[in-house]
Design a protein around this nucleic acid. Structure first.
Lengths: 365, 365
DNA sequence: AACCAATATTCAAACGTTTGAATCTTGGTG
DNA sequence: CACCAAGATTCAAACGTTTGAATATTGGTT
């Protein structure tokens, strides 16, 4: 009935329907400070009518006028990677109390999409941007655009403080250390390592951590048992890489009793490869992953891994973004921060002490 | 430099900078039909200046004026469920060519969040809504609101055509049949079944399919080998349920050589339970899942399952929504549709013929 | 009776676009 | 030289809000 041209009920409609001016209605419905001055009876009447007509304020008009979008762009490099979703959830939860909404989109590991969606995010006047990144994010040209528009940006999963961007990631090196130390404590001495792809930021520090812990605890790592995943990678090539390397390792007949895989999917690939060849995990060979994503938890044996506090990282990313926005409003200069979240060793079923002391016997069979 | 009060470059800025009126600049930059009448030289000049200043049209102002948001609200019941993400990807891909953007949010299986986010979607004037649903979506009050605002809506994962909503889901019954027939063809006769939670729409038809195929192929299902998952469920309780039931089945000492699990996570739980008790999959017991999500693929043994064409379903959902929007513009009445996507059996490592004992030996023939 | 301070409500301009209608240039034609 | 049709550009109103300033309505003091 009250609907004029647009399919939506507007302030105007409500005003006309209850005989007050648009201003009054607006003041009441948006609970502006002035609404204290509005007679309680009027308030009641207006509210009732609004409800009755099914009025919802138009976010566009409101944002245009208030110059606030209440939106944070969230750009995930690959939503189907189980790594992303807990972070996203943390972000959403962190934004909600401030009445901000994430504008969440999936770059599907394609640079082209990434770019065009980033532009879209700017056009929708996001007040901040959170990028969940990995290799996809190495160019700076878009950053320049963002900077030009003074939109605060936080990146999770990479350290880009060098390019003046607040960054949030797990302490990869500590995680690497943990995995090696765990295996060492179990008694392993012949440990294979599958490093991450060269392009991926996490690869280097994890490997460094492993090496450091090895040196510190007197374990030497046989170079011939160190592999590296190839570059192009969606969450699935990790699995395939793990599988391929496991086969390769076994074929080389070089003895090893444990594998440190770059991430959980890689670890699962390794398990597959070992199982294929008749090696049992963990009795014949231990495997440890990294990330602690769902598949690692529900596989049998479940994968011992290095847990990343993903949800907490998402929460923090949201908090930083909001606080950067606030700072900008107050005219405060922007402050770039870095946080390395503490990883945590989660011991599950895929690791155990190495078989017996006569290692070669069983393993070469 | 050109930026006045807002942090953003506006049409006005561009106009002033190159000495044309706002209208002209708008016409050129938005490639309106009138822009054919604009001298090529002016066009060039304007474009160049826009680029130089870093102008991006304000989506709010544009949407307000054009009365189009170019946005489809996408409400996922649980983004961290690996079931959701492929659908989301399909939706996003289906929307892109039409220059629509999904406003994607995660209801986290909470009705309260679901409601408040749905309102938010309406306020942001989404031109359509796609709900990826399961149990969470059983009330109609919100639907009424949506209807009132004439926003087309499509639901994927449930049949709500009864409530006048276009629905898109897998043919659960066919899937159920497939899983039973697969096991039967392998020679299994003692098959346990774990049904889905009662509240979940999929549960019933899958079970019906299993029963139908059983009847048709002369396999009888022992009622005492039929279980049902409890109601409250995030994607993880499926796993726990499977594990619990596996233990229970084994404890009952009732013989069975295969398990049909409600979904992949449940299947993985079953595998865990069987393994715990020393039963090998598939040599001692076969397990089949449903959905074909990532964890089923990367586990060892990989899980034989019923594949849902999730991405295609997402694409179709997007197409339907867009076409409903178009129809509404043309004043055509709304048409509600139903599609049951064809599932597909994916044979992997978790199923095999039953161990050849007394009875099964004969039946293999 | 004039004045004041609350209290209650409305005006009108603005946010950044788009677009139908209006205006201003042209050069070409009769 | 008056006239016209394109061709090129601009006017001005609108989209649905918000908000500082203005106005109208009270009853209460001097």
């Amino acid at each position: 009935m009250g609907q004029r041209k647009s399919g939506h009920v507007t302030l105007h409609d409500v005003a006309r329907a209850c005989g007050y001016s648009v201003s009054t209605v607006s003041i009441v419905l948006s609970e502006a400070p002035l609404s204290q001055n509005v007679a309680a009876s009027t308030r009641e009447r207006i509210r009732k009518m609004a409800r009755q007509l099914g009025y919802h304020p138009d976010a566009f008009a409101r944002s245009l006028r208030r110059r606030r979008s209440q939106t944070i762009g969230v750009l995930a490099y690959d939503l189907s990677d189980p790594f992303c979703t807990p972070i996203v959830r943390g972000i959403q939860d962190g934004l909600q109390p401030a009445h901000f909404v994430p504008l969440l989109i999936d770059a599907q590991t394609q640079r082209k999409l990434f770019d065009s969606y980033l532009r879209m995010i700017l056009e929708r006047r996001a007040e901040g941007v959170i990028v969940i990144a990995s290799w996809i994010f190495q160019e700076t040209n878009l950053l320049a655009d963002i900077e030009k528009n003074h939109v605060p940006i936080v990146i999770v999963g990479r350290d880009l403080t060098g390019r003046n961007i607040s960054s949030l990631l797990v302490d990869n090196e500590a995680g690497g250390e943990m995995s090696l130390r765990h295996l060492r404590d179990l008694g392993h001495r012949h440990i294979a390592v599958i490093r991450g792809p060269e392009e991926l930021f996490d690869s280097e520090p994890r490997w460094a951590g492993v090496q450091r812990a090895a040196a510190a605890s007197g374990v030497s790592i046989d170079e011939r048992l160190v592999f590296q995943l190839p570059n192009l990678m969606d969450s699935f090539t990790g699995f395939e890489g793990g599988l391929a390397f496991a086969r390769q390792m076994l074929a080389s007949r070089r003895p090893f009793t444990a594998v440190i895989a770059f991430d959980d999917l890689t670890a699962l690939g390794v398990v597959r490869g070992l199982t294929e060849a008749g090696r049992r995990v963990p009795q014949d060979c231990s495997v440890v992953g990294f990330d602690d994503v769902l598949p690692a938890m529900v596989a049998t044996p479940s994968i011992t891994t290095i847990h990343q506090p993903l949800k907490e990282m998402g929460l923090l990313a949201a908090a930083w973004t909001l606080q950067a926005i606030e700072a900008r409003e107050k005219g405060a200069g922007k402050r770039i921060q870095l946080h390395q979240a503490a990883p945590q060793l989660v011991v599950r079923e895929s690791t155990a002490p190495p078989a017996s002391k006569e290692k070669s016997k069983k393993q070469q069979a």
